[in-house]
């Protein structure tokens, strides 16, 4: 059977007014059903660009991205995005309408079925109390929870999260990380998560792909992160830090994906 998501020697470039910038160079990885796959790297490693390519907003210059064996062409509701920006919720719709809207627009569900399903997911993220409020009355953390509920309600093949907690304060961020893990325990959805925080990657991820910058290339692949005890996690954090910030050439840069077993 085809893998859920395959990114195959993917080179991504984007054009600015003055130059064509290579964001990633021949990056390959694959995500299996139920993975919490984290793309981790410093800024400039192309992790967000990579996620946008999986989302279908950018076409690869080289290589291919496949979902269940089919090449990605264009954005689609089988890959729901959760963005970092708080304005990803449509301000003219209430919380419930925001979650129900894609169900109606993309899944063509009836108004009633969509509302019922949306309510179920709004309850899941504990926002029943504000279900009929407009997004501007919500805190940043609540808005991100709505965005997650919206993504989950669509039951996509894969949920794409682009630094969803980066704009939150530190306390809320920790709370949201715990909540995401709890939701995952509940439904075991597949998630591709982009972050620049090593701690967040270890906490959230079951697998971590380390990318080095300029252009983004795979530096290492960390497996079985989920079961790490605090001591192991602390060691792992140090190890990843060294890997990311060691001068290139020290630890096998340019080699294909190097497996790191925690």
């Amino acid at each position: 059977m085809a893998r859920l998501l395959e990114v195959d020697r993917c080179t991504l470039r984007y054009r600015t007014d003055r130059a064509v910038v290579t964001a990633t160079h021949r990056v390959s990885f694959h995500v299996e059903q139920g993975d919490r796959y984290v793309l981790l790297g410093p800024s400039g490693c192309g992790k967000s660009t990579l996620l946008k390519a999986v989302g279908g907003y950018i076409m690869p210059d080289e290589g291919e991205i496949r979902i269940k064996g089919h090449p990605v062409c264009g954005a689609g509701a089988d890959r729901m995005m959760v963005f970092q920006e708080f304005d990803q919720l449509l301000p003219w719709k209430t919380v419930l309408e925001n979650v129900a809207f894609p169900l109606r627009a993309a899944r063509r569900m009836s108004a009633r079925a969509a509302t019922e399903k949306a309510m179920h997911y709004v309850e899941k993220v504990h926002l029943t109390r504000v279900a009929h409020s407009h997004p501007h009355t919500l805190s940043g953390g609540m808005k991100q929870r709505v965005a997650i509920a919206r993504g989950m309600a669509m039951e996509p093949d894969i949920l794409l999260m682009d630094e969803p907690f980066a704009a939150l304060d530190a306390l809320t961020r920790r709370q949201m990380q715990d909540e995401l893990l709890r939701l995952w325990d509940d439904t075991r959805f597949t998630v591709l998560f982009v972050t620049h925080s090593i701690g967040e990657a270890i906490k959230i991820g079951s697998r971590i792909l380390l990318l080095s910058p300029h252009p983004g290339q795979v530096r290492a692949d960390v497996e079985d992160v989920g079961q790490a005890t605090p001591e192991v996690a602390a060691q792992l954090e140090q190890r990843i830090h060294d890997l990311l910030f060691a001068p290139a050439g020290d630890a096998g840069a340019g080699l294909p994906a190097m497996a790191e077993h925690a």
């Binding site: 279908g56 689609g76 304005d87 990803q88 449509l90 627009a105």
Partner: peptide
């Protein structure tokens, strides 16, 4: 209209007039 909201609209598979009227 913010880039994020445009991407949200495309994520919902809205195109053409539906995209204009709904987003």
């Amino acid at each position: 209209v913010s880039q994020t909201q445009r991407m949200v609209g495309r994520n919902y598979e809205l195109r053409g007039l539906r995209y204009v009227f709904l987003i």
